[in-house]
Design a protein around this nucleic acid. Structure first.
Length: 297
DNA sequence: GTACAGGCAGTAT
DNA sequence: ATACTGCCTGTA
């Protein structure tokens, strides 16, 4: 580790870039409009980020919430400590320097659950389309800067929603999974405060009870909305990254598709290796894989 | 036409 | 326990 690494970290921390973060594949409902402003949907709020200069951003929200960006981009976390914790090798050190503005985001739990249930066996443009349709059909219209947006529907909204109307959002066979998740939340079976206070293992066990939530989706929900920064969601991109750069982390060979056992082994090895902020390392590796693969979303 | 996309659950071995 | 298969839908 270079001697000036800690001083380096301080400068990395100050280069926080919300635009990179919202475009790193963890959130789906953000759009760019005229004059370089980005608008996003988070629960009942429409959020806005305007780039006012190099590394200078203005954050606003409708209705007003002056602190939303602190919460959403986890600016209450100590990025310096986190970067230090996950920098276990030259690869992570390199990509933290490469994308110093990238942050893990804190999402509304219900929106996060519906988003990642929609994400099963499809691609990001399709996920965006499904969620966009859901907001238009079941959300509430909000005018911001002369543009029309729709809030994200509540679990109750989805729980009460008509099956055919849900189907018309392009969800396909995911309708059943969306419905079961909505009912679990609306009925109180899933209690976000309880899940946040619980350990990673306990909270994951609860999520896995829900029809339509498996290993990967559960880990995304835990990491992005339930404060489990040690969760390490394992998808084909991350598996590839681990296979190429951390072959010593796993014993057995595996192909493109992971078996249940392989998922557990890989994810848990990565969690042990990267430590309590493993999920942050995952986001960096994921973003780097997508960047180098030239994916546009 | 056919393969494929950031999984999951149900069924068969 | 582990492997195999179908699944909505849109795009290449």
């Amino acid at each position: 580790m270079p001697r000036n690494w800690l001083a380096d970290l301080q400068s990395l921390y100050s280069s926080f870039d919300p635009i990179t973060s919202i475009n790193s594949g963890q959130v789906f409902l953000w759009e760019k409009h005229r004059d370089s402003s980005w608008y996003g949907v988070s629960g009942d709020h429409i959020l806005k980020i305007k780039q006012a200069g190099c590394e200078l951003f203005e954050f606003s929200s409708f209705p007003e919430d002056k602190a939303w960006h602190r919460r959403m981009f986890r600016l209450d976390d100590d990025a310096r400590t986190i970067f230090g914790e996950i920098s276990r090798d030259s690869l992570v050190r390199r990509i933290v320097r490469l994308y110093p503005g990238l942050r893990l985001m804190r999402q509304e739990p219900h929106q996060c659950i519906f988003s990642f249930v929609c994400a099963s066996n499809t691609n990001i443009p399709m996920i965006r389309r499904m969620l966009h349709n859901l907001t238009r059909k079941f959300g509430r219209p909000v005018k911001v800067d002369g543009l029309e947006f729709f809030t994200f529907p509540s679990a109750n909204d989805i729980d009460r929603a008509d099956i055919d109307e849900l189907r018309s959002c392009g969800l396909g066979y995911r309708v059943r999974a969306i419905k079961s998740a909505a009912h679990a939340i609306a009925s109180g079976q899933l209690d976000f405060d309880v899940l946040k206070a619980a350990s990673y293992e306990e909270a994951k066990k609860e999520l896995l009870q829900i029809y339509g939530i498996g290993n990967k989706i559960a880990d995304c929900i835990l990491l992005f909305s339930l404060e489990k920064l040690d969760a390490f969601p394992m998808d084909v991109w991350i598996a590839r990254a681990l296979l190429e750069n951390y072959s010593w982390l796993h014993q057995e060979e595996f192909g493109d598709k992971l078996t249940l056992h392989q998922y557990e082994e890989l994810s848990n090895s990565a969690r042990r290796y990267f430590g309590k902020y493993a999920g942050y390392a995952q986001q960096y590796l994921y973003y780097h894989m997508r960047q180098t693969a030239g994916k546009k979303w």
